[in-house]
Design a protein around this nucleic acid. Structure first.
Lengths: 193, 193
DNA sequence: GTTAAATCTTAACACTGTTAAAATGCCACC
DNA sequence: GGTGGCATTTTAACAGTGTTAAGATTTAAC
C-alpha cells in the first residue's frame, strides 16, 4: 500500500465528494477548484482532465443533487402519496431543500453551471416530470421542455412547482422562517387545484 | 474642466451605476470590484473607502433594486389594484423580475450580500409588507420579521409571495417559459385565497 | 515487450479582493 | 488669506484563484 500512488484511482468521484463536503461545510462561497483538489489530495490542474473547468465539476454535483431530489419525490409518492400525491411531493420538495441547503442552492445557480449539459438537463427535467405527473397523471417527455411552445405543459403543475420552489428558496435565504407553526401546512394547502 | 480630477465627485453613485451596467451587460459572473472601479475610471482600491468590500457594494445595489421593486408594487396598487390588489402586485412582481433579470438575481444572492445591513433589511421587508398588506389589509412592521416567532405574519401572504417568487426565479433560469400563452395568468389564478 | 493513451504534476500567466502606505485635493478654522 | 486636518484616491504589494502548456508517470492495448 504505497502512501500516495501517482494515479488516484477514482479522482472524478473524489472531487465530487470533496465538493459536496465543501458545500455543506462552508457553502457556495467556500468552494474553489483548488480547494476541491486539495481535499482530494491532488494538484490544482488535475481536475481539468475530468471536468474541463469548474463549471463542469459543479454541474456534475448539481446533476447528482437533482437525481437525489427525484429519489425523494418518488419515495414520497410511494410512501403516502396515493391520496394526495401533490401534497406528498410538495412536502418532500421543501424538506429536501431545507435538509440540503448548499446543494439546493447550487442546483439553481445556473450561471455557474453548464446548462446545456445533457445529464443535467435530463436530471432536472425528470424531477419536474414527477411533479407534473402528480398533477396531470402524465409525465413530461424531455422534448416537450426543449420545444419553444412547451406543448402539453400543465399550468397547474407549473403553479405547484412555483409555490414549493419559491417557499423553499425564501426559507433557505432567511426571508421566511419554516419553523413557524402551521406555515408549511398552510403553504401546501394552497396547492389545492 | 480638467480631464481627470483627483477627486471623483460622486464615486459612490458612480460605482453603483457601473455595477448595474455590468450586471445588465454580463450578469453576475461578469462582475468584479476591479471592473466596477475601471468603469468608474478609478483605481482598484478606491471603492473600499465607500463600501468596505465587494459585499458592501453589491448590498447597496440590491437595496436599490428592492426600493425599485417597492415602487413597482405601489404603482400596481395605485393603477388597477382596487379590485384585485394581490393579482396586480403579483403581476408586477413577475414583470419586475423578468425586466430586471440580473438585479433580481442579485437581490436573492444572499451569501454575496451583507444580510445584516439595515438599509437592505428595511428595503426587503418593505417589499414584503406591501404584499402582506394586499392580502390582510395590514402592513408588517420590521420588528415582526426580526422576532423569531414571527407573530402576525399571514400564511396566505407567504404563500402568495412563494408563488410569484418561485415562478419568477424558475422563469429567470429558463426552467419555465414565461411566454407560454396563458401561463402567467394561470399562475396568478392560483393566488385565489 | 513496446508503444500509445490516460492520468497527474510542475510551472506559469493573468486576474481577483484586500490592505498599508503615501499622495492629493477640499474645507473649516484662525 | 493662509494653514492644518480630513476625506479621498493612488501606488504597491500580498495571497489566492482558474486555466493552460509542457513534461512526468502509470496503465493498458496490441
Amino acid at each position: 500500500m504505497p502512501p500516495k500512488p501517482y494515479h488516484h484511482g477514482d479522482l472524478r468521484q473524489a472531487l465530487i465528494d470533496a465538493t459536496e463536503e465543501i458545500l455543506t461545510e462552508r457553502g457556495m462561497e467556500g468552494f474553489s477548484m483548488r480547494e476541491a483538489a486539495r481535499r482530494a489530495g491532488v494538484s490544482p490542474a488535475a481536475p481539468a482532465h475530468h471536468f474541463g473547468d469548474a463549471r463542469g465539476l459543479l454541474t456534475a454535483v448539481a446533476t447528482g443533487a437533482f437525481l437525489d431530489l427525484q429519489e425523494a419525490l418518488r419515495a414520497a409518492n410511494a410512501q403516502g402519496g396515493e391520496s394526495k400525491p401533490l401534497h406528498a411531493q410538495g412536502r418532500a420538495y421543501i424538506d429536501f431543500g431545507l435538509a440540503n441547503p448548499a446543494r439546493f442552492d447550487l442546483m439553481w445557480r445556473c450561471e455557474a453551471l453548464n446548462r446545456g449539459d445533457p445529464a443535467y438537463l435530463a436530471a432536472s427535467a425528470g424531477a419536474f416530470s414527477l411533479l407534473h405527473e402528480a398533477v396531470t397523471g402524465l409525465p413530461v417527455r424531455p422534448e416537450q421542455l426543449c420545444d419553444d411552445n412547451k406543448p402539453g405543459i400543465d399550468v397547474r403543475a407549473v403553479s405547484a412547482w412555483s409555490l414549493v420552489h419559491g417557499f423553499t428558496t425564501l426559507a433557505r435565504q432567511g426571508n421566511v422562517d419554516p419553523h413557524m407553526p402551521g406555515l408549511i401546512d398552510g403553504v401546501l394547502a394552497a396547492l389545492a387545484v
